[in-house]
Design a binder for these strands. Structure first.
Lengths: 164, 164
DNA sequence: TGTGAAAGCGACCCTAC
DNA sequence: GTAGGGTCGCTTTCACA
């Protein structure tokens, strides 16, 4: 939890969370510090786990995955969560998996090529997992309206100022 | 949306979707092509919109956002979707927004610092948007079990082979 | 922790195929 | 659409403060 981030950390996160290829030297110039400082900060943030990874974001629709759905999963009683998770992990089309409190035990996000594919995933891959009682599907429309990273830093990041 | 991706495209996407800082030259060596080829392919993929962006992924929990929820939104009748979307966009804690078919009109993903914060967002920001009839919240547990990009390319990518 | 310089590479552009 | 070379700029490391 309490990772104390100062303004410089937040500025760095602000930049690199929007464009992973931003040169560290460019960030350094924006922040009026040396390139080495940025480099060291980024390494520390990675070690602390504040930075989880970096990735190019692919448009799933353009590579043939036309359908996306959130699925709430209800488990049978006395089921070991981890067993179910292990099965779910084996389905490559599942891109997120969460525990939830309330109505469902778990919530997953899944991509499929089309509705038929989605149905097959539901029936042949999900429903057959031991422990899964039933599922409810919230099918998302073709167009994702928007998607972004949490811009926690927006307000506090002022690009034209000294480092403190 | 037939963007025809050949094996080389898929290999490239496979690498850069997992680590945005992978040097193109390294990918080139893996694929037995020149660095320039990778560079041009990536540019083309960006122009086509297959690559949407690149980003460092921040661990939200480690920067003080302890709570995450999916929220299904029901709209009043005769409401212009876009008006509602415009209001939702103004809430920085919302990181995804989708249209859905079925029970809800829209589905969003939202981060909050804690339960109180989530409640305030629901009551003070979401519920007051004109056109929003009611919402249903699926609160996600602290620990995200996993999150990954669609590895469409896994099966087809063989790192030790020629380019065709 | 941050700095500055130095060394090693990679990105990018251009020309040729 | 790919290869190769050259230049420029970036990353990374190190001694020092």
């Amino acid at each position: 939890m309490g990772h104390v981030l100062d303004k410089l950390d937040k500025k760095i996160l602000h930049f690199i969370s929007q464009n992973a290829r931003t040169p560290f030297l460019e960030i350094a110039r924006e922040c009026n510090v040396s390139g080495a400082a940025i480099h060291q900060r980024v390494q520390k943030l990675m070690q602390q786990g504040v930075i989880r990874s970096s990735e190019f974001v692919i448009d799933q629709y353009k590579v043939g995955y036309q359908t996306c759905a959130y699925i709430g999963i209800v488990l049978k009683s006395n089921v070991e969560f981890q067993d179910v998770v292990n099965h779910i992990k084996e389905i490559p089309e599942v891109v997120e998996c969460h525990y939830t409190t309330g109505k469902y035990a778990m919530f997953i996000k899944i991509y499929a090529k089309d509705n038929r594919h989605l149905l097959r995933l539901l029936l042949d891959k999900l429903a057959v997992i031991p422990g899964v009682a039933n599922t409810e599907t919230f099918q998302l429309s073709l167009e994702e309206i928007f998607r972004r990273q949490l811009s926690v830093f927006g307000e506090e990041v002022n690009t034209e100022q000294d480092k403190n």
